[in-house]
């Protein structure tokens, strides 16, 4: 009876995993199919794989779009980690007037719908001639990344024992030195985790990217969204590009797998 229950549990777990894995496998499979096999009825499961879709993806605008995505995501992440770690450390170590209010305000930025800032940003960037530039998206993504970084990093700083910083103070370190030489090195895994989440969020964002870029600074999701071409939808190329775009995200997820709860719940749960 006990063994039966155990087996049933394992089978259930495998079934759940299969449900989430199947669509991903299907798109990977599709990326290796020819045009005919992609549109075959009934769908084919076994076929001679081809790399043609990947070659096509590399010869399209896709590499440029990925480059844009990376420039924007990395720049925004670096700015957000620098500013976020300063402020998170401040909230963690100093009591400032209205600290709770300010922290809540930062949290509420997580609730801010992107559509609400699309209109004003579009007009302002248009006026400044910054539409379709990297700078526009880097700045806008900072809005979401900084607020995220402050909350999550505060949790990591709170976990550092104060005694270490006290000892450094007694050794004659100034507060900035304590921050740079004691707190930051101790929080490095937290900093890395936060950075990875900022990167993922920035790479995945779509509404602001599609509104504020047209061609030059187009990110990968924007490129992928323009599926309708004169030739119809090239599902082979789209699948290959999707797989290439998801690959780094999968690697990032493996890196931060133990901190998923914190990263996904804005640090509200540990």
């Amino acid at each position: 009876m006990k063994i039966l229950k155990r087996v049933l549990g394992v089978v259930l777990a495998l079934f759940v995993a299969a449900m989430f894995l199947f669509p991903l496998l299907w798109v990977v499979l599709a990326s290796f199919k020819t045009k005919l096999e992609l549109l075959a009825v009934p769908p084919v499961f076994i076929f001679q794989p081809t790399l043609q879709n990947y070659i096509n993806a590399f010869n399209s605008d896709f590499p440029m779009q990925v480059r844009n995505s990376l420039i924007i995501a990395i720049s925004s992440t670096v700015i957000s980690i620098i500013l976020g770690s300063l402020t998170a450390y401040g909230f963690s170590r100093y009591a400032i007037k209205g600290s709770d209010f300010l922290q809540f305000w930062i949290l509420s930025l997580r609730m801010l719908p992107a559509i609400a800032v699309v209109v004003p940003f579009y007009l302002v960037f248009r006026m400044l001639g910054l539409l379709d530039t990297h700078i526009a998206l880097i700045l806008v993504y900072c809005l979401f990344n900084i607020s995220f970084a402050v909350w999550v990093l505060k949790g990591f700083f709170d976990e550092i024992p104060l005694e270490l910083e006290e000892a450094a103070m007694l050794d004659g370190y100034s507060p900035p030195q304590v921050f740079l030489r004691v707190a930051l090195p101790l929080a490095r895994s937290g900093l890395a985790t936060t950075a990875v989440f900022c990167l993922i969020q920035s790479l995945n964002e779509f509404l602001l990217a599609v509104s504020l870029t047209t061609r030059v600074a187009e990110t990968a999701p924007v490129g992928l969204s323009k599926v309708q071409t004169l030739m119809g939808v090239d599902w082979g190329l789209l699948s290959a590009a999707s797989v290439l775009f998801m690959l780094p995200i999968v690697i990032f997820t493996i890196i931060v797998r133990n901190e998923l709860v914190r990263g996904m719940s804005f640090g509200r749960m540990k």
Partner: peptide
Amino acid sequence: IRLIVFLPMMLAPLVVGLF
């Protein structure tokens, strides 16, 4: 298994919608 199950929420909603 957990890693597989947690993967979808990390992907770009646009790419997920696409496939």
